[in-house]
Design a protein around this nucleic acid. Structure first.
Length: 491
RNA sequence: GCCCCCAUCGUCUAGCGGUUAGGACAUCGGCUUUUCAAGCCGAGAACAUGGGUUCGACUCCCAUUGGGGGUGCCA
């Protein structure tokens, strides 16, 4: 094991850059700095369906914005590259073969149908433990090797079947699991790509990671990871599972209940240093209880052992207060600079101006007309409220439609461009039976707060995904709380 | 269901066997201010419950309850 501390953040590029990624990155970054070590960025893009380059670019961008720089990574290189798992396929296949040869892993030919059947059977029988039943583990190696040549298969880790496994977490101490409750995890998928478990362990070892500081959701797969280190004959790193950031209802933080995209915080005008400072307050307190401190001060003071374990609720209100303190502490020129690099940048203004230009008569009209391009939430006046729900539609129906549009079509959209939006919205109309007239007006009001605006798709594109999301969700809530008018029978 | 983790004000937390249980956000008062913010001062607000251990438990142990996570060819 390396004698210099090496930590890493290993995000999956499968959507908008997540606040949880920033949280884990912050602690990994600070811990590495504290010990004069190195902080590595590794892209875990082994999910071929969900991973994509735009998401990866957004992760780089968001972390740069926050000021969390890495010493090694896909974009800066380093001695342990490549740092993108999709480029390390050969490495994983070699390693998995070592495991198969040593009997620590085996090919599994079970079909999805059989697996589903097994699961259903277990559930019906009220089995104590759910999971793979080890069916293919008893296939003689010679036969298995022969079948591998032309049958679709995965490679599974052969876990011990009885006894106990003791793993150590830096914050929680020794944790005991019964092997009987842990099934044989897939290591290599049938498409030849590794699963998280394999890729993660192989890479952490090869990249000489000394401290794995990651979210608590990984704690229950720690025995599988420990078994992998054992099977490879490697010394495991120190594991430190951070508490999970929570919604107000204490569930794991999610976009349904909180803004989780770092793009949101950036667009809303949170200062990166304030966001980082706030994140550092989650599960951590300075020895002197000071609440305002810089990244450098955090890095100087961080002791992992002091991390608190109750899952902290992410409180936008306190973040906003802290951000306000940072903002007020800026010299005027500093604030000007921040405005000029965001909402009042030439780049943004030049996007807004073409949409507004033909609709104003005096320069001063600009501010009023373009207002919704610069504020966070829009207010809905009585007239807007009336048009939020199309004639002949109920509030209930409208709320449901907005929710569906958001969660099933807009949330996953990365390429937030006018033409793409138009395509999505038009096909959404066809599918749901909403006329474009109805849907577009509802959306226009939701997103701009007004029944009259520049062209909808251009407007949405300029506003950006985060703002649109936020406003549509707000509109949905408002509509949902509206009473459905009594339908009076015609007399 | 099963496995694992967790448990101090509404929220973030300090505490590490002996404290009037401290700070911050939020809330509510007051001061300041032409107003609104900001700022300052103040108030209310917590050790989940039950057993142990101990001269003494918020602190240690056990149970209960509650919360969370996991249980995928997602990470």
């Amino acid at each position: 094991m390396s004698d210099i501390v090496r930590t890493r953040i290993a995000p999956s590029p499968t959507g908008d850059p997540h606040v949880g990624t920033a949280y884990a990155a912050l602690f990994n970054y600070a811990f590495a700095r504290r010990h004069g070590g190195r902080f590595i960025l590794r892209i875990e893009d082994t999910d071929r369906v969900r991973s994509n380059r735009p998401s990866e670019a957004m992760i780089f961008d968001a972390l740069h914005w926050l000021g969390l720089s890495w010493d090694e990574g896909p974009d800066v290189g380093g001695p342990c590259g490549p740092y993108r798992q999709s480029e390390r396929g050969e490495l994983y296949r070699e390693h998995v073969e070592r495991l198969v040869a040593a009997g620590h892993a085996y090919p599994c030919f079970c079909t999805k149908d059989r697996l589903d059947g097994v699961r259903a059977g277990q559930q019906a029988a009220g089995a104590a433990t759910l999971g793979y039943d080890g069916f293919c583990r008893s296939i003689p190696p010679v036969e298995a090797a022969r079948r591998r040549r032309d049958e679709s298969h995965v490679i599974r880790l052969a876990m011990p079947r009885e006894g106990q496994c003791v793993v150590r977490d830096l914050l929680r101490g020794d944790i005991t699991f019964e092997y009987a409750g842990i099934d044989d995890q897939v290591l290599l998928k049938s498409d030849g790509f590794p699963t998280y478990h394999l890729a993660n362990v192989v890479d952490d070892h090869l990249m000489e990671i000394t401290h794995v500081i990651r979210a608590e959701e990984w704690l229950s797969s720690l025995p599988k990871h420990a078994q992998l280190y054992h099977a490879f004959g490697w010394d495991p790193p120190v594991f430190c599972h951070l508490p999970l950031l929570r919604n107000a209802d204490r569930s794991k933080i999610s976009k349904r209940k909180n803004p989780v995209s770092l793009n949101y915080y950036r667009r809303a005008g949170f200062l990166p240093e304030a966001l980082l400072n706030y994140l550092a307050l989650m599960g951590w307190a300075m020895p002197d209880e000071r609440e305002e401190f810089t990244l450098a001060e955090f890095a100087e003071a961080l002791e992992l052992e002091r991390i608190t374990l109750g899952g902290p609720i992410f409180d936008l209100e306190k973040l906003s207060w802290l951000n306000g303190k940072y903002l007020r502490g800026l010299p005027s020129e500093g604030l000007l600079e921040r405005l000029r690099s965001g909402l009042l940048s030439d780049g943004y203004l030049l996007q807004v101006i073409p949409l507004v230009q033909e609709r104003i008569e005096k320069l001063e009209d600009f501010v009023d007309y373009a207002r919704f391009f610069f504020v966070g939430e829009v207010a809905y006046d009585a007239e807007a409220l009336k048009k939020l729900v199309p004639k002949g539609r109920t509030p209930r129906d409208t709320a449901k439609t907005l929710k569906e549009l958001l969660e099933e079509h807009l949330d996953a959209l990365l390429d937030w461009q006018p033409a793409v939006l138009e395509g999505i919205l038009r096909s959404f109309c066809e599918r749901t039976g909403w006329s474009p007239n109805e849907a577009f007006m509802t959306l226009r009001v939701a997103v701009t707060g007004r029944p009259a605006s520049p062209p909808l798709f251009d407007t949405m594109a300029v506003l950006g995904k985060e703002v649109c999301r936020q406003r549509i969700r707000r509109a949905q809530e408002i509509v949902k709380s509206m009473k459905t008018p009594e339908t009076r029978p015609l007399t």
